[in-house]
Design a protein around this nucleic acid. Structure first.
Length: 916
RNA sequence: GCGGAUGUGGCGAAAUUGGCAGACGCACUAGACUUAGGAUCUAGCGCCGCGAGGCGUGUGGGUUCGACCCCCUCCAUCCGCACCA
């Protein structure tokens, strides 16, 4: 009986399906476990070997937990709204729904090949109306809520209205505009529109205005990624900043809870650090500087008020509202030219720019502490969206300010004495202040509070907590997304009522943008006639709550029943890439908190444990064509020729050696290619890049599954290295894993002899091998160390092989252990040795320490830290006994000679070190 | 620019809490079996050295009886930076 994986795998996949082996119930006496993958965007390129890395890991963990007696929820679905489908529609006229469904079918086929234990009855697709009905519903909850800063939670907006009617907003500072103040009488006197405008400043989902990268020629908004040096990546058209009406989520109100919540969840320290850096909480002060000769003041935000005597210039963002009114005629032209330049720059380029640029406005502010005039500059590195859009520059203490001052020859005031050497800024807080009037001699960090007290007493500023995070832009001028359940009447946004949901995404004739920066929906007469919002929601809307829908996917009356979400609770293990560190993982945390505040769910963090899978990179191969010819030069000989470097399909290259025959057949262009070989071979160039179809470096899992089987593929992906680690894909080593599986098979059935497994009682030696393995596999799986678990399987089988063990009692237990890793293989052998039920429902072996007890240990003995000998000593030997045994050992004596032993270190069960 | 991660044989990696560096596998070498081998089995395999031994975890330093592991410096590579998902 041979190991015929393709027959076996098909057979068991069908058996699992017909027996509904992976259907999971919302009611069970077993403990629950929720294991979740970040669901994929179904791209047209299909699955490559990078995708299943995390899916295999989560599948192993799910199956492991199931064997250990848990009721495991392990679902899968599709993040199906998004730009690529829309782009494809624009180019090919295919409705995004159609291409998306085709892509999903393809993904599903590919996923099924690998033998996952998903409960497909729970599949969700964010683009289905039955799903996005509830995305719209949650949006309405956010729209109809505000964040109560006293209670520190979201509350229904109706309660806020009741408060306004009673006392105005004296106790409810307006988060959207702190200058809005009104009494109960004021409120009652406002028109409907005025009231709605005020409420909009409180809502958790609100409408406002924001700047975007606008490309007039494409009539569309672009991501920073799509803008290169002021031009669109696609087509090379000019791009500039434009203010558009936008929806936002008031995630900043949750900043503190998003920070403190990190302490309650198991994310890696790196992930937590990235999130808190993104939130960027800082303690500082806002200070007003009067503008010289104007009845205006410039408000800056600073974390270093102690340096106020070292301010040599101000820098304001080019978008700052004050610039126009304070710039004197003499400087108008240069200021406007600079602003025009910055308009073409994406935010990313502005922050990342190493070259210093800026422009003097010709205006000055007055330092309120010493009345000195301070010039006001504008520069692109100051962003309008952060703080007040203006900073006070202290060159002796801030690197960026220092370089700016040097570049523009602005004199530098030293306020930290010797701590500043004139060559480099020193951002210390420990220096004693000089040139600082009443602060002279004070340590900087102590001066912060003194200055803060003073500015508050003088009424020119106040302490301020600031966040780097901005409210999340929540609208897109696109077609393929959830429509907003909003109608605009007389400039006021009115929510649809719950029974009008879902508001279906209508069909359009063409997918291009609407007029005036509006989305494609603005092109539909009937849509406009109903006054519906023409923007759609962004990609992250549907993905911010999908983990809840899996729990109760076919509920038609609720997004998820409270009873069900109480049962499943938090996701116990969430697996996905770090690229979602600050997007999806913050948004979904915020949505969870809001739903919790409003009482719809009982937990306020969605993911108890996050495991980040590393990115599988592609290892690209290149050929070198002599310019203007059909001659290809081997990589080692390129030097002498003028060549173009071209990507070549990695599947035609064995290591670095090109299959020249396959290459000639690859593209008509290459049919009559000549090659200049080295050592008779054509050697390709190698580079590690992102895996992508256009780089011809993708490897399709289907091919590997076909050649080696799903079980080998699953184990090989895990055997590559730690799941968390990024690495370039290399198919080479898969043979080793395949050999292991075949060897394991031969423990049961031999090609020549047929059945070789026997029904005999195991020896203690065999039991020791088994129990050592049980312990190792269980521990490694529990800590997601799948690569070491697989090597433990290999060791186990090697040892059983060497021991000549073919005993069912042992092998059967190892089969259960390996089920999460190689489920088809295990099912087949499980039934072949006479079991009736499915192995996926077997009971996990229980480790018994009595089989692995040791009485002695081979201690490594080192002398001055270098291992010189190994001595076997009883584990229960006392330190004195050990000392005696070791020092009388001839090998040790040879090294110690007559030198006195200064110290002997004995770590029980570990090692012995002699210091001489 | 800012933030995060990673760096160990020819290659993927292991070393779980500061305690024998290189488990397990790939590739390679030699041999066995064989009509055949891209099957299987046996043995070898960090570097230098005949050997004794010495050296060795990106660089340079530090802490320690002892450092791949902790601290500092520098270098290289990868990922993210708000409308790609």
């Amino acid at each position: 009986m041979e190991y015929q994986f393709s027959t076996i795998e098909k057979k068991w996949q069908e058996a699992w399906k017909s027996k509904k082996a992976y259907q999971v119930s919302n009611e069970s006496s077993k403990p629950k476990c929720y294991v979740l993958d970040m669901f994929p965007y179904p791209s047209g390129a299909g699955l490559h070997v990078g995708h299943p890395l995390g899916y295999i890991a989560s599948d192993i963990y799910s199956r492991f937990k199931r064997l250990k007696g848990f009721n495991v929820l392990h679902p899968m679905g599709y993040d199906a709204f998004g730009l690529p489908a829309e782009q494809y529609a624009i180019e090919h006229g295919v409705h995004p729904a159609k291409s998306t469904h085709g892509n999903i079918d393809n993904f599903r086929k590919q996923l099924d090949n690998i033998g996952f234990s998903y409960d497909w009855e729970r599949e969700v697709r964010t683009c289905d109306a039955t799903y996005y009905k509830w995305t719209q519903w949650i949006f309405l909850q956010l729209f109809n809520s505000y964040y109560d800063r006293v209670a520190q939670k979201a509350m229904p907006i109706a309660e806020l209205i009741a408060v306004f009617e009673k006392e105005g907003n004296v106790h409810q500072v307006c988060p959207g505009d702190a200058n809005i103040n009104f009494s109960a009488a004021d409120w009652k006197g406002y028109s409907e529109k005025e009231q709605q405008t005020i409420l909009m400043h409180y809502r958790l989902a609100f409408c406002g205005y924001g700047e975007v990268n606008w490309c007039e020629a494409l009539g569309t908004v672009l991501a920073n990624d799509e803008v290169i040096n002021g031009f669109s990546e696609r087509g090379g058209h000019p791009v500039e900043k434009k203010k558009l009406r936008q929806w936002y989520l008031r995630i900043t109100e949750y900043a503190d809870r998003l920070l403190s919540g990190l302490e309650t969840i198991q994310f890696s320290d790196a992930m937590k650090e990235m999130q808190s850096n993104w939130i960027g909480k800082s303690y500082g002060a806002e200070i007003d500087f009067a503008v010289n000769g104007h009845d205006a003041s410039l408000r800056v935000y600073t974390t270093r008020p102690d340096t106020v005597f070292g301010v040599d210039f101000m820098v304001v963002a080019p978008e700052h509202a004050l610039i126009e009114s304070i710039t004197p005629a003499s400087h108008k032209a240069s200021v406007e030219a600079y602003i025009a330049y910055v308009k073409s720059r994406s935010e990313r380029e502005r922050i990342a720019e190493k070259k210093i640029s800026g422009c003097f406005t010709g205006a000055y502010v007055v330092n309120p502490f010493n009345q000195q005039l301070i010039p006001i500059w504008i520069s692109e590195y100051v962003l309008a969206g952060y703080g007040t859009g203006a900073i006070m520059a202290v060159p002796c203490g801030d690197d960026r300010d220092f370089k700016f001052a040097q570049h523009f020859n602005i004199p530098i005031t030293n306020i930290i004495g010797d701590a500043f050497d004139g060559k480099e800024a020193n951002p210390t807080k420990e220096a004693k202040l000089t040139n600082s009037d009443f602060l002279n001699g004070v340590i900087q960090k102590d001066a912060i509070a003194i200055v803060n007290d003073k500015i508050e007493a003088m009424g020119i500023g106040k302490r301020k907590v600031n966040y780097r995070m901005r409210d999340a832009a929540f609208s897109r001028q696109r077609y393929w997304g959830e429509p907003f359940p909003i109608k605009w009447i007389d400039g006021v946004a009115y929510p649809l009522s719950e029974n009008e949901l879902p508001l279906l995404l209508p069909d359009v004739d063409h997918y291009g943008p609407g007029p005036e920066g509006e989305g494609p929906l603005a092109n539909i007469e009937s849509w406009k006639a109903e006054n519906y919002e023409t923007n759609t929601m962004p990609g992250y809307a549907g993905s911010s709550w999908y983990f809840l829908r899996y729990m109760d996917p076919s509920n038609t009356t609720e997004f998820c029943s409270r009873k069900v979400s109480d049962y499943w609770g938090q996701v116990d293990l969430y697996i996905g890439g770090t690229e979602h560190a600050v997007g999806h993982l913050l948004y979904s945390r915020m949505w969870t908190k809001a739903l919790y505040d409003l009482g719809y769910i009982g937990f306020d963090e969605p993911f108890k444990k996050l495991l980040n899978q590393g990115m599988i990179q592609g290892s690209s191969r290149f050929v070198y064509r002599k310019r203007g010819t059909h001659t290809f030069v081997s990589a080692g000989l390129v030097g002498a020729h003028e060549v173009d470097q071209l990507h070549v399909d990695v599947n035609m290259v064995d290591g670095v050696e090109l299959d020249t025959a396959a290459f000639k057949k690859w593209k008509p262009d290459y049919a009559n290619a000549d090659f200049i070989l080295e050592d008779g071979k054509y050697v390709c160039g190698v580079e590690v890049e992102k895996m992508s179809k256009s780089k011809f470096n993708t490897v399709n899992p289907d091919d590997l599954v076909q050649k080696y089987g799903a079980d080998t593929f699953r184990m090989y992906e895990m055997f590559l290295g730690p799941v968390e680690q990024s690495k370039p894909w290399d198919t080479k080593g898969i043979e080793g894993v395949h050999r292991f599986i075949k060897k394991f098979w031969r423990m049961f059935f031999d090609e020549m002899k047929g059945k070789v497994w026997v029904d005999e009682a195991p020896t203690t030696e065999e039991l020791k091998i088994l129990h050592k393995t049980i312990k190792k596999i269980e521990e490694d799986t529990e800590r997601y160390s799948f690569n070491t678990a697989i090597s433990a399987f290999m060791i186990c089988i090697n040892e059983l092989y060497d021991a000549g063990c073919h005993k069912k009692a042992i092998l059967e237990q190892v089969l259960i252990l390996i089920t999460p890793y190689a489920p088809h293989f295990s099912e087949e052998l499980w039934s072949a040795i006479g079991n009736t039920g499915l192995i996926v429902d077997a009971a996990y072996p229980i480790f018994d320490p009595q089989y692995v007890l040791e009485t002695a240990k081979e201690y490594p003995v080192s002398i001055n830290g270098k291992v010189r000998s190994n001595i076997s000593i009883a584990l229960d030997a006392s330190e004195e006994q050990v000392r005696e045994i070791v020092l009388s050992n001839p090998a040790v004596q040879k090294w110690v000679e007559d030198k006195p032993v200064k110290k002997l270190i004995f770590v029980k069960g570990k090692m012995i070190n002699i210091v001489i």
